[in-house]
Amino acid sequence: SMIKEYRKAYIEEFTQEKYQALMDDLKQRFGTLPGFKVAETPIFIPHKLRQRLFEATADILKVINRPDFKELTQGAFYNDDIIVPNEDDHPKFIQLDFGICLDEQGELTPKLIELQGFPSLFYYQEALARTYRRHFDIPEGFSIHPNSITHAEFLELLRSEIVGDTDPKRVVILEVEPEKQATAIDFKATEIRLGVKTLCLTKLKKRGKTLFYLDEDGEEVKIEKIYNRVIFDELYQRPELKREFHFVDEVDVEWIGHPNWFFRISKYLMPFLKGDYVPKSYLLDKLEVLPEDLQNYVLKPLYSFAGTGVQINVTKEIIDALPNKSNYMLQEKVEYHPVIETLDVPAKCEIRIMLIRSSKTNSMQIISNLVRLSKGEMVGVRYNKDKNWVGSSAGFFEI
Rank of each mutant, 00 (worst) to 15 (best):
D285V: 13
I356Y: 00
G380M: 02
A347M: 05
W255Y: 07
L299Y: 06
G309E: 10
A184P: 06
A394N: 15
L322K: 12
T166W: 02
L194W: 01
I366Q: 03
L96N: 15
S392H: 06
P34F: 13
Q116E: 14
F44K: 06
I265V: 14
N79L: 04
L174W: 01
P139N: 00
D276I: 04
E350C: 15
L373F: 01
T150D: 13
K333Y: 09
P42K: 01
S1E: 03
V345F: 04
E216H: 09
H337L: 09
T342P: 01
M2F: 10
K48G: 10
H90C: 11
I94H: 00
L211I: 15
R372S: 08
H246A: 08
Q295E: 15
V230Y: 02
L155C: 02
H90G: 04
R207I: 13
K205Y: 10
E13S: 14
V248F: 07
P91W: 06
I60F: 03
S359I: 04
E216K: 04
I351K: 01
Y123A: 00
K169E: 12
P146S: 09
I45Y: 01
S304I: 12
V379F: 07
A182K: 15
V310H: 12
E254N: 04
I3E: 06
D80V: 11
A306D: 06
N65Q: 03
L322G: 12
V379E: 09
I162S: 02
P46S: 09
K180Q: 11
K197I: 11
G31E: 12
V196L: 01
L96G: 15
K286D: 11
G35E: 14
E40V: 06
Y303C: 05
D344K: 04
Y383Q: 02
D97V: 05
L49Q: 07
I223L: 03
S281N: 08
E161A: 13
V379W: 05
Y132T: 15
K188R: 14
T315K: 14
Q74F: 04
S326E: 15
G195V: 11
Y303D: 08
Q74G: 04
K206E: 06
P168H: 10
I367P: 11
P301N: 15
R193G: 01
L299P: 02
T183L: 03
T308R: 06
T210P: 10
T361I: 09
V171R: 00
G208K: 02
F187K: 03
C101T: 15
E55S: 15
L211Q: 09
T361H: 10
